[in-house]
Amino acid sequence: MPHIEIKDLTLEYTDANGGFTALDGVNMAVEQGEFVCVIGPSGCGKSSLLSVLEGLNKPTRGEVLINGEEVTSPGTDRGVVFQHYSLFPWLSATGNIVFAMKRSGISGKRKELSAIAHEYLDKVGLSDSYDKYPSQLSGGMKQRVAIARVLAANAEIFLMDEPFGAIDPKNRTELQELIAMLAAEEKKTVLFVTHDIDEAILLADRIIYIDDKRVKADITVEIQKPRTRASLVGDPKYNELHGKLMKLFYQNVADNIGGEEVVL
């Protein structure tokens, strides 16, 4: 049984001026321990797909199953890292992690929980920021805390929506390698949304390309893990895959231009 199964998922947003279909018949499955990147142009419905998995939105049609059970609400079996920094500003780095641990039913004395939180902060390279508040952390540091938070809360599934989208290239590379290592080490199932082709190839066991509200391509990445930016350079498999994904994006652009020309 796949860890995550999405069957015929349709999501419509309804508001004052009618409805808007964001996803239309999405089918996909993610195996236990698999790292899947979801990629596609802006507005194609990537975040919408994740919001259903997070339990924040309910499917209009179809269903989402985790371990064969339908998802109807948020749950601590899933850990979420948003693109926007989602730490609570009134809690320190440690406090944020302890909060999430308590929500996941991890109990213990405040001191014990803090000690565990510190271990995870060490893991993400924040040994000197235990007591800093989010306003005292850079964007990259905040996302490190967010990663430490989902790790400490011990979720089986990581749902990450462009977590490194707003981070400078040097830090982004570090964070990508960090999440690749941690996910493999802790055997997590990861669904990682990005619009960065290189990021997807670096991280994914499988890349799912979404466009036009549904899955358009499902590509297994055959390149040996662990991968680094350096090891990918010049790898023929990397070049081929990169070309393939570029074509998918480009095809979309060409279609749009073509369409407009017809209109003109």
Binding site: E54, G55, L56, S73, P74, G75, T76, R78, V80, F82, H84, S86, L87, F88, F99, A100, R103, S104, A153
Partner: peptide, 16 residues
């Protein structure tokens, strides 16, 4: 809204 969402995904109950 982001604060509310990040609390909701941690499955917080109403009093929390």
């Amino acid at each position: 809204e982001k604060i509310i969402d990040s609390a909701r995904v941690m499955k917080v109950d109403l009093p929390t």
